[in-house]
Amino acid sequence: MSRVGTVVDLFCGAGGLSEGFRQAGFEVLAGSDFDDIAGRTFAATHPEATFIGGRIQDLSVQRLLNVTGLAPGELDVLVGGPPCQGYSVYNHNRGVDDPRAGLFREYLRIVEGLRPKWLVMENVSGLTSIANGGIIREIQDGMNALGYEVEFKILKAEDFGVPQERRRIFFIANRVGAPIRFPSPTHGENLKPLVTIWDAISDLPPVENGASEEGQRYRTAPTHPFQAELRSNRKTVSNHSAPKLSAVNMERMKHIPSGGSWRDIPFELLPEGMKKAKRSDHTKRYGRPRKSDLACTILTKCDVHWGAYIHPEQNRALTVREAARLQSFPDSFVFYGSKTEQYVQVGNAVPPLLGRAVANALISCDESLSQEKAVA
């Protein structure tokens, strides 16, 4: 595949967004993140790129230019997702006072010095409700002031073949006068069928609660094109171990059928705090999704107490590898660190298939980028 352009990934984490761009034919030159453990994963899975650790506030434009060998104005795309916990709909104290809520200004500082042709910034959809849209306007105004035309849109990951309900806001901008278009859905009504949980994970070997299946062979040959693509030519499975749940949680799961939740657990087995809950509340907690469902949003821990993270067949929580599949990470991604750190890397990432769709949309807009695209 010919290179279609160059990419630098700020707040790269494990590298989900840059992986999507790489699949579309871009060359990833560098990634930067404060999380050194995620950086180990990024470095191992992006051997062509340089990982730069440390705070974004301490990252100079000159260092990025030195690492990439580029001059200002030569980079094709700067991508990044400033840490979003301050904005997340799951953070009930979210707002502009959260210290993480201003990190997009560091992204803009790097933009001013690098002068890339294109910008892609992503974040949680809850960004739209902060300060009556004030953060959105500040991002737009900041990009406009640097000479970029910018548009934003909330994209649904499942529309692009990701087996998960996930909403992300994307800002796409350029200074080259090219039109800005967002990717058109490829999956859904009158399109390709949505990819379900079972389409994504049914070929992975069974795992007992608290046990590891590192290095085990797949349970079956690929039964769905999604599995075949993510497996590629791998023969064994990594990061496939289940968290060890308590005896009471194991007992609770025995009562939860396919499509069920905490409401199927006998009252005396419920956590004390949930004994007072209305049956209309917390619909995802202790959820066991149907095989035909989309996964709920993969967060930074697949805690059965907080979401529908029980395996469709087995009495256990989802493994890191299953969460990574539901995020559309290739099986070649080996996540480093403790199991807790691995879940964080997976949950914080942009699904690579969603990133690839955005990357291909940029290629379709800009004649200066090669017309050779990755096969979707």
Rank of each mutant, 00 (worst) to 15 (best):
V150W: 00
M253G: 04
V334D: 07
C12S: 14
Y87I: 03
D303I: 08
V4H: 01
T45A: 15
H305A: 12
S258R: 00
I130E: 01
G260K: 01
R167G: 09
L155W: 10
S364H: 06
R55M: 12
G161W: 02
K156C: 13
S232A: 14
E268V: 11
A157N: 10
P206R: 01
E322A: 07
V79E: 08
L78K: 09
F335N: 00
P222I: 06
W262V: 02
P257W: 01
K244V: 05
K276H: 13
L119A: 10
I201V: 13
R40M: 15
G177F: 13
H92K: 13
D366M: 05
L29R: 06
R356S: 05
E208Q: 08
V358K: 00
D366A: 10
S212V: 04
S246L: 05
G31N: 10
E322T: 09
V61P: 11
A323Q: 05
Y309L: 02
Q342A: 07
L318M: 11
K192F: 10
A145D: 15
R279W: 11
L29S: 07
I139E: 03
Q314K: 09
G287F: 06
G73I: 14
A131Q: 12
E138K: 12
V176Y: 11
P179S: 13
N360S: 11
P222L: 05
V111P: 01
R234Y: 04
R166W: 06
V28C: 10
L108W: 05
A44S: 15
M121Q: 10
L70I: 12
G307E: 02
V344K: 02
R279Q: 14
D293M: 08
S212M: 08
L270T: 10
K156E: 14
K254N: 05
V237H: 01
A361N: 00
A374M: 07
C365Q: 02
E341M: 04
Y218M: 01
P47E: 03
G215F: 07
G15P: 00
I110E: 04
E151D: 15
R55D: 15
Q57V: 10
R115E: 15
A178K: 15
R316Q: 12
E138Q: 14
G307C: 07
D35N: 14
F26T: 01
D303Y: 12
T50I: 15
K117V: 01
G260Q: 00
G307I: 06
P82N: 11
G20T: 04
S332A: 15
E341N: 07
D76Y: 10
S328T: 12
A157L: 12
P179L: 13
I110L: 14
A295E: 02
P312V: 05
Q85W: 09
G147A: 04
E229P: 02
F170W: 12
S202Q: 10
V162I: 08
A145T: 07
E138H: 10
S60W: 02
G210L: 03
P47L: 04
V176H: 07
I139Q: 03
R166D: 03
D33Y: 07
T340L: 07
L64N: 12
A317L: 09
L75D: 13
G177E: 13
S364E: 12
V67Y: 13
V150S: 08
E272M: 09
G25M: 03
N174Y: 05
I310K: 01
F335Q: 00
T340P: 00
L65G: 15
E214K: 10
